[in-house]
Simulated scan of single mutants.
Amino acid sequence: MRIEHVSKRFGSVQAVDDLSFTVQPGRVTGFLGPNGAGKTTTLRMLLGLVVPGAGSATIGGLTYRELDRPARVVGAALEAASFHPGRTARDHLRVYAPQVGVPDGRCDEVLALVGLGAAAGRRVGGFSLGMRQRLGLATTLLGDPRVLVLDEPANGLDPEGIAWLRGFLRHLASEGRTVLVSSHVLSEVQQTVDDVVIVADGRLVHSSTLAALATLAGRTVRVASPDVAGLQRLVADSWPGAVEPPDDARPDRVVLRDVDASAVGAAAFAAGLELHELTTQETGLEDVFLQLTNGQAVVA
């Protein structure tokens, strides 16, 4: 799956701006960004529901409209599925089976796959939100697609439902499928995804493996001393490669990355250096995500 220099404007609003990224098979990719970042518009262009103003969005080198029997190639859920409350779960899927080109027996297969086998004969009107989410996912799987595109699939799920979804998406990726999941909350998907694509204001701000993104998180120690020259010597002798760019113009303060405050305090004591500040700040993945989407620089 490839998005190449895609742009889309709606009137005066630039929804997507020269966006490019690739989604690999056998991996779960998190497509992340705040509400209004352009995620849904990008997915709609990928699925042929919106025509790009520039660039291309392809699956296996073809646009969605060029795919032969696209529901057998791509399973997509871009919004909360609507269900007739009087239909059973099985009958809901039987409505879609002929359109996808699969026999009725496939309906029971996918219901079992998402854990609704025992509820196949129950009316959807009595389903919980989590069960409805599972039924929506079963609908996307009818054609046994190799590509899944899911927009905010964990919305409204309770912790048990989120845990189930994480495991299920990991299972689908382990079968070699390409799985793209959008979300506006990194913490919601960070235990699921292998790769992350982060957008803000329609533009790409970060693309990497989750492990590479995690290297941007960490611990910093802020050290201040009235003896500016002594502080600079201490840092140069002990942690020359750990100095972060200054977050203010104060010459008496240094910010060190991934250094223990206790080690700094001990070294300052041994050097007879008076300290006026020695504080530790933890930066988690969610903090990095917020900094990226708010336009703040993040140092690797």
Rank of each mutant, 00 (worst) to 15 (best):
T22H: 07
T58I: 01
L285V: 02
D194Y: 14
L142S: 12
M45C: 01
Q99G: 15
G136S: 05
P251F: 09
T283C: 08
R166P: 06
V223Q: 09
A163K: 15
G136W: 01
L135Q: 11
G143Q: 05
L234N: 05
E109P: 02
D108C: 06
A267Q: 10
N294H: 15
E66Q: 13
A297W: 10
S225T: 10
G265W: 03
F10V: 02
R106W: 07
A297L: 15
I3F: 02
R87T: 07
A263H: 11
F83Y: 06
G117S: 02
V95C: 12
E274A: 14
P25G: 02
Q99H: 14
A37M: 01
G167H: 09
V288L: 04
T279V: 09
N155Q: 06
S262H: 10
L148R: 05
A263D: 14
D227K: 13
V51F: 00
L256P: 06
V74C: 03
A15K: 00
P246V: 11
D91K: 14
E160C: 07
G53W: 00
A71P: 07
E79M: 00
D248E: 14
H184G: 07
L116A: 04
S208E: 12
A57Q: 00
D252K: 09
A112D: 15
V124L: 06
V102H: 12
D18H: 08
C107G: 08
L129V: 15
V259T: 10
L150C: 01
A118Q: 15
L142I: 03
L231D: 05
L46G: 03
H184W: 14
V288S: 09
L142P: 02
M131W: 14
V95H: 13
Q99A: 15
S262F: 09
E160T: 15
V223K: 07
L273I: 04
L19G: 00
E244N: 11
G241W: 11
A54W: 01
R69C: 05
R253M: 12
S20Q: 00
L273E: 09
G36I: 04
H184D: 03
A119G: 07
R9Q: 07
V223I: 11
P98S: 10
I198D: 04
A211Y: 13
N294C: 12
L204R: 07
G117L: 04
I59D: 02
F21I: 00
L172P: 03
T209S: 15
A297G: 13
L113T: 05
D237T: 13
G38R: 03
G230R: 09
G143P: 03
L210R: 04
G36E: 03
A267L: 11
S128C: 09
G272S: 08
P34M: 12
A112G: 14
P34Q: 10
V6E: 02
A89H: 09
G218C: 05
D158V: 05
E66P: 04
Q14L: 06
V95A: 13
V100R: 08
V95Y: 15
D18S: 02
R132C: 09
H5M: 00
Q191K: 13
L273N: 11
V50Q: 01
S82H: 13
L49Y: 03
R72Q: 12
A37S: 03
T58A: 01
T40F: 01
R87E: 12
E274T: 13
G36V: 02
